[in-house]
Simulated scan of single mutants.
Amino acid sequence: MKWKKFKIKTVTEAEDIIISTLYDIGLEGAQIEDKVPLTAAEKEQMFVDILPDGPEDDGIAWLSFFVEETEDGRLQVNGEDTDEKAVMASVRKELEELRAFCDIGEGSIEVEETEDIDWINNWKQYFHQFYIDDLLVIPSWETVEEEDQGKMVLHIDPGTAFGTGMHETTQLCIRQLKKYVTPDTVLLDVGTGSGILGILALMFGAQRVVGTDLDICAVEAVRENLESNHIDPENFEMMIGNIITEKEIQDRVGYGCYDIVAANILADVLVALSPVIVNQMKPGGIYITSGIIDDKEAVVVEAVKAAGLEVLEVAHQGEWVGVTARKPV
């Protein structure tokens, strides 16, 4: 399938009104390109600790709208056939009417043809099987090679949830799980994503896992990865919500009942999580954390200690840090 891309050069102040106006004529779903700095709330939702400084905001915005093109070159808008000339005429008319009462900047229009891209699956071309020490991590669309038969194999497909095992922070957590998981372990995985840490805990012999996440996509990702690894879903319970701020989630998760808590999330989140999650841990329970960029190490270590936990180990891989601690008996 092909698409016609109509790209409008405007100003940032006019983004919303142009998008709304063109929506009314059947052009839905705009792609926005501008240099407006991210807000603090937007940065929090991006699940990254450090963002590079962007270019200075010049007030210019590019709005792109995509119209489906049939094999014979016709365009589809509002379920009806049209063509590029008619769409251009409609867009120009709407822009000129807007220009009469607000600044829309240049208001020029470019047209490009683009191939249909499967954004959900396109990343798979970059994700191939790899080893974490003696553990083979393999995506669900690849097969185990003959020479790898008999190895411990984790089949993983993150879908739209976070967690393939390639990142240093995930590997730091995995190594700690191998040290501390026993057949009696009940584990809480905060920010479970694809379920990789909880699933590996079960493969290492843990008895049961509870995972929490903010993203509903994690539920399906975990279900699929449990199935791919032939693990009984009864042993992995998922809960969606914020365990730091939601008392209901804290109550559902339970208190004083976890041998290990794993949290591979951002340093600032770990600071807020540590004094809360200590209540979910058994006396003597292990707290395995990562997602910590190296210049945030001291902040997290201090927060862990302030929560009454004993720091057992601080591990490094590249520029990332893992902190493992124990709750006093």
Results as ranks from 00 to 15, higher is better:
56 E>Q: 13
167 H>E: 04
285 G>W: 00
208 R>T: 13
209 V>E: 07
323 V>P: 09
87 V>L: 02
217 C>I: 12
185 T>C: 07
76 Q>L: 15
270 L>M: 10
241 G>A: 10
289 T>P: 12
125 Q>G: 04
297 E>L: 08
303 A>V: 10
261 V>K: 00
70 T>D: 13
118 D>M: 03
318 G>Y: 06
234 E>H: 11
225 N>W: 03
267 A>D: 09
299 V>I: 13
300 V>N: 10
73 G>Y: 02
301 V>I: 09
154 L>I: 13
256 G>S: 01
235 N>V: 06
266 L>R: 14
287 Y>C: 00
53 D>N: 13
97 E>F: 00
195 G>W: 00
21 T>C: 02
315 A>K: 05
134 D>F: 04
124 K>L: 03
174 I>G: 03
273 L>G: 07
50 I>S: 08
329 V>M: 06
166 M>W: 00
260 I>R: 01
26 G>W: 01
41 A>C: 00
214 L>M: 11
276 V>T: 15
264 N>I: 12
9 K>V: 12
247 K>E: 13
322 G>E: 00
109 I>Q: 08
192 T>V: 06
119 W>Q: 11
72 D>T: 11
266 L>T: 14
99 R>Q: 15
274 S>P: 05
271 V>D: 02
120 I>L: 10
13 E>D: 14
21 T>Q: 07
246 E>P: 13
252 R>S: 13
266 L>Q: 11
